[in-house]
Simulated assay, not measured.
Amino acid sequence: MSLLEKATFGAGCFWGVEEVFRVIPGVKHTAVGYMGGSTTSPTYQEVCTDQTGHAEVLEVEFDSNEVSYKTLLQVFWENHNPTTLNRQGPDVGSQYRSAIFYHSEQQKEWAEASKAELDVSGKWGNSIVTEITPATAFYRAEEYHQRYLQKRGLGSCHL
């Protein structure tokens, strides 16, 4: 019997983040959108003003019998720079911040433990600035953003 859970991550531009997670065995559904802001039902244009407080996020629905939340955290840490505040590569603004939005106390504990372990390891050379906060309302991004890279035959958008 499958046990579907949700995980929500902000790691820069959501197009590339979605492509990384979409292909993981056990991930059943992905959707890009916005979370963590102060307005209801924001549009991409509003989020890009850097005034709504939302992060570009990926919501992942996964079967925890096939892939663990801890594995998803590992993928999250390995696929962006968690030490740059409000920036990933050429993308600058609070919507590109590194963020984990947890859906349970267990997810919170695992996220905080993995962040602390990675920070102590010194792998990044700088302190990790990733925020770990409770999941709030998820606002699905406009349809043209969903599976954006896949629709264009691209595997990533990283430099």
Rank of each mutant, 00 (worst) to 15 (best):
residue 90 P to K: 09
residue 91 D to A: 12
residue 118 L to D: 11
residue 137 A to M: 00
residue 113 A to D: 13
residue 84 T to I: 05
residue 128 I to L: 06
residue 87 R to W: 06
residue 113 A to C: 05
residue 95 Q to F: 08
residue 86 N to H: 02
residue 146 Q to D: 07
residue 138 F to P: 09
residue 119 D to R: 00
residue 73 L to W: 05
residue 117 E to D: 02
residue 143 E to F: 08
residue 128 I to R: 02
residue 139 Y to I: 01
residue 130 T to D: 05
residue 143 E to I: 09
residue 137 A to K: 10
residue 80 H to R: 03
residue 82 P to L: 06
residue 71 T to W: 05
residue 150 Q to R: 00
residue 122 G to Q: 15
residue 85 L to A: 11
residue 115 K to A: 10
residue 136 T to A: 14
residue 108 K to P: 10
residue 104 S to M: 12
residue 119 D to P: 09
residue 139 Y to R: 11
residue 130 T to Q: 11
residue 88 Q to P: 02
residue 111 A to P: 05
residue 127 S to M: 03
residue 136 T to P: 06
residue 148 Y to L: 15
residue 132 I to S: 04
residue 142 E to R: 10
residue 109 E to N: 06
residue 78 E to L: 08
residue 89 G to E: 02
residue 94 S to A: 12
residue 141 A to V: 11
residue 74 Q to R: 15
residue 69 Y to T: 02
residue 128 I to S: 09
residue 135 A to F: 13
residue 143 E to A: 12
residue 150 Q to E: 12
residue 131 E to K: 11
residue 99 A to L: 13
residue 82 P to D: 01
residue 70 K to P: 00
residue 134 P to Q: 10
residue 108 K to A: 09
residue 68 S to Y: 11
residue 96 Y to Q: 10
residue 88 Q to E: 14
residue 94 S to Q: 09
residue 132 I to F: 03
residue 110 W to T: 02
residue 116 A to L: 05
residue 131 E to Y: 06
residue 150 Q to P: 14
residue 150 Q to D: 04
residue 120 V to H: 13
residue 64 S to H: 14
residue 113 A to R: 15
residue 136 T to H: 08
residue 91 D to R: 00
residue 72 L to Q: 03
residue 108 K to D: 12
residue 109 E to D: 01
residue 120 V to G: 04
residue 98 S to W: 01
residue 75 V to T: 11
residue 101 F to A: 09
residue 115 K to S: 00
residue 104 S to Y: 05
residue 94 S to L: 03
residue 81 N to H: 02
residue 105 E to F: 13
residue 98 S to A: 03
residue 118 L to N: 15
residue 141 A to F: 14
residue 125 G to R: 12
residue 76 F to M: 08
residue 108 K to N: 04
residue 149 L to T: 09
residue 76 F to R: 08
residue 120 V to D: 10
residue 89 G to C: 12
residue 68 S to R: 11
residue 67 V to N: 02
residue 74 Q to D: 14
residue 103 H to I: 04
residue 89 G to W: 07
residue 130 T to N: 01
residue 137 A to I: 10
residue 148 Y to C: 08
residue 145 H to K: 09
residue 94 S to D: 13
residue 114 S to I: 04
residue 101 F to Y: 15
residue 148 Y to E: 14
residue 77 W to S: 04
residue 146 Q to F: 07
residue 81 N to E: 11
residue 80 H to Y: 02
residue 80 H to D: 02
residue 112 E to F: 00
residue 97 R to I: 05
residue 83 T to Y: 00
residue 130 T to A: 13
residue 134 P to H: 05
residue 136 T to K: 13
residue 133 T to E: 14
residue 84 T to Q: 13
residue 96 Y to E: 11
residue 94 S to K: 07
residue 74 Q to F: 04
residue 112 E to N: 12
residue 95 Q to P: 03
residue 134 P to G: 03
residue 130 T to E: 05
residue 118 L to C: 10
residue 126 N to Y: 01
residue 105 E to I: 03
residue 65 N to R: 03
residue 123 K to M: 10
residue 138 F to D: 12
residue 71 T to Y: 08
residue 100 I to K: 13
residue 84 T to K: 10
residue 131 E to H: 01
